[in-house]
Simulated assay, not measured.
Amino acid sequence: MGCITWQRVALRTADFLISAVVVLFLLTAGAYSAYALWDNNQVYAAVDNVQDELLQFKPAADGENGASFEELLAINSDVKAWLTLDNTAIDYPVVQGENNFSYINTDVYGDFALAGSIFLDSDCDGSFHDPYSLLYGHHMENSKMFGDLDLYKDEAFFNENTTGTLVLPDRTYHLQIFACLLVPASEDAIFDVNQWDANLNGLLDFAQENALHLHSDTLDTVRAREGAQVLAMSTCSTEFTDARTILLAWMTTPEQ
């Protein structure tokens, strides 16, 4: 009988310990989930705060009323442009660092920020005189940073929304969006920015053959226009490992 009693005590003790471990695990998991949610909200709130502050410094385009570009440069001399895509929440300054890691987790003020900044590839000309320029931005929910590039994967949205602006210190480019693509991060046609210095034909051929959606008339105009310039915008996507959503836009000035 004594042996049976000790076995029952041992089993009850084991049950108690297992229950305690389960409760502790659930409490830890709940606390972690609450922290993760709070931390995620902090990241998104930080993006909102920075964007709200910077919008007052959004430079005027084509002689419109607005701030001067010098006000942006006073905040950070790495600011090269201001990008706006119409009918999206993409409305940010563009910076360029010494390398492509400089602004992955750094905001325009130079502070650490998981959301990072919209930045120009470090191998591109900072004054946007190259035939091909490439911008990067984190893919974030709630239309933050380059999250709204996803909108262009919807054919109806792509067809109806084709415009934007890129404001520089000395000129404004009007953007005419002509292609949306889904590519791996290893795709040289997009990410080897120097190969299109001579001409854009290879890039345009790649877009024509691989685009999810395409405005062929605009692409044909770009192909025929001597000295044409293309702006690419890249963000992460989830369709496959290392997937990237790419938007291509023709850069034109008012006199073109």
Rank of each mutant, 00 (worst) to 15 (best):
F16K: 06
L17R: 06
W38T: 04
A31S: 09
R8K: 13
Q42E: 14
V21L: 14
Q42T: 09
N41L: 06
G30L: 00
A46I: 02
N41G: 15
L24K: 04
F16G: 09
V21Q: 10
L37W: 13
V21W: 11
L24Q: 05
D15M: 03
L37P: 03
L17I: 13
S19F: 08
D39A: 15
Y44V: 00
A45H: 10
R12S: 10
L27P: 00
D39T: 10
L26C: 15
V23I: 15
V22N: 05
A34D: 07
Q42M: 10
L17P: 03
R8N: 10
R8L: 15
G30F: 00
Q42K: 13
Y44R: 02
A31C: 06
A36M: 15
F16W: 12
I18C: 04
R12Y: 12
Y32P: 00
Q7F: 09
R12F: 13
N49S: 12
V50P: 01
F16D: 05
Y44P: 02
A34E: 08
D15L: 04
Y32E: 00
Y32S: 00
V21I: 14
F25N: 14
S19K: 00
N49L: 10
R12H: 09
A14M: 13
A36Q: 15
V9E: 09
Y44L: 12
Y35N: 03
F16A: 13
A45L: 08
D39L: 11
W38S: 06
A10V: 09
Y32A: 01
A14T: 14
V21R: 09
A29S: 10
Q7A: 14
T28H: 04
V22E: 08
D39F: 15
S33N: 05
T13K: 07
A20I: 07
W38M: 09
W38N: 06
A20R: 05
V47M: 10
A20E: 06
V47Y: 07
A31Y: 08
V22M: 13
T28Y: 07
V21N: 09
V43S: 02
A10E: 11
S33T: 04
Y35T: 01
V22H: 04
A46G: 08
S19L: 08
T13C: 12
D39M: 13
Y32M: 03
A10W: 11
V9G: 02
D48Y: 01
V23H: 05
N40A: 10
A31F: 08
A31I: 06
W6K: 14
L26G: 10
V50L: 01
I18L: 10
T28A: 09
V23N: 05
W38P: 01
V43Y: 01
L24D: 02
Q7G: 04
S33F: 09
W6I: 15
Y35P: 00
A45E: 10
F16C: 11
Y35D: 00
A20P: 01
N41R: 13
L11Q: 08
L17E: 03
